[in-house]
């Protein structure tokens, strides 16, 4: 009997610890499929963040390094400089990448460091129990913005793709979502592309994945996916923000 569906080789058999309805599982799978499709598993090294995905080092079957909070792009820089022929990716959340690690993110991007960054934006700190993130929406209620994010006192969300695409250097920046099948297919294509760019030595690629957090948003999984469509995507428009292959033409 022909196998029509199986687990990607780039994932281990460890059961994921993520909450019901969390989209980390989908995104892990998309990353693993990209690694499998490109046949790079044996020469890939991943960098796990601090946050919900901290234990990604148990889930991906490539070599893995666990980085300090926000430092994954710096760690990836070290790995890539030491091993230019290896494929290095980071997998980071919004607090990790856009708050405590903003300097590392911006500078890895402006060096056009030849790495792949997977940025999962679910507008909240999940692991620590639902605090306001740099990407929480205006008015969004969280544990540390119990009256809703007040832009007058804590400012506006950071739009990472828009911000990074103001830099001259980065090669590829795209924002995708995984709240429906169509978006998942587009996300898969984008993530694969981000790895391909590195294989071809083109430079820094970042894929922002607009994601959901039913547990900390206090919603059912379906409601959370709907909220991604109705509230997140209008604030964080999907699309390609930087594609140097186009500029070269």
């Amino acid at each position: 009997m022909a196998v029509v569906f199986s687990k990607p080789k780039a994932l281990t058999d460890a059961p994921l610890h993520y909450c019901p309805g969390c989209t980390h599982g989908i995104i892990h799978r998309l990353v693993a499929e990209a690694i499998d499709d490109l046949g790079i598993l044996g020469r890939t090294v991943g960098v796990a963040p601090v946050g919900c995905a901290v234990m990604a080092y148990d889930y991906f079957s490539c070599d893995m390094v666990e980085a300090a909070h926000g430092r994954a792009p710096a760690v990836a820089t070290g790995l890539k400089r030491a091993m230019p022929d290896r494929i290095i990716f980071t997998y980071q959340g919004d607090g990790d990448l856009a708050s405590i690690g903003m300097a590392e993110t911006v500078h890895a991007a402006t060096r056009n460091e030849n790495i792949t960054v997977i940025f999962v934006n679910n507008a909240i700190y999940g692991m620590t129990g639902g605090q306001m993130a740099p990407t929480s929406l205006p008015g969004q209620v969280t544990q540390t913005s119990p009256y809703g994010r007040d832009v007058k006192t804590v400012g506006y969300p950071i739009k990472v793709c828009e911000l990074l695409s103001a830099l001259d250097a980065p090669y590829y920046i795209e924002r995708v979502a995984v709240n429906n099948v169509k978006h998942v297919m587009a996300a898969k294509k984008a993530i694969k592309r981000a790895f391909e760019n590195q294989v071809e030595g083109r430079g820094f690629s970042l894929i922002e994945v607009v994601s959901s957090c039913p547990t900390n948003w206090g919603m059912t999984p379906q409601k959370a996916l709907d909220w991604v469509e109705s509230d997140m995507i209008p604030y964080y428009p999907l699309g390609v923000y930087r594609d140097k292959s186009k500029e070269a033409e």
Binding site: V45, V65, A67, A68, A74, A76, G78, L79, E104, H107
Partner: peptide, 26 residues
Amino acid sequence: GTFLQAESEISAINMVYGVSSAGCRV
């Protein structure tokens, strides 16, 4: 070899962490 002026001391030590993870002197 690599010489890289990092964006901060914090980044520099984490780049060191990356290279050391790869098994190289740093």
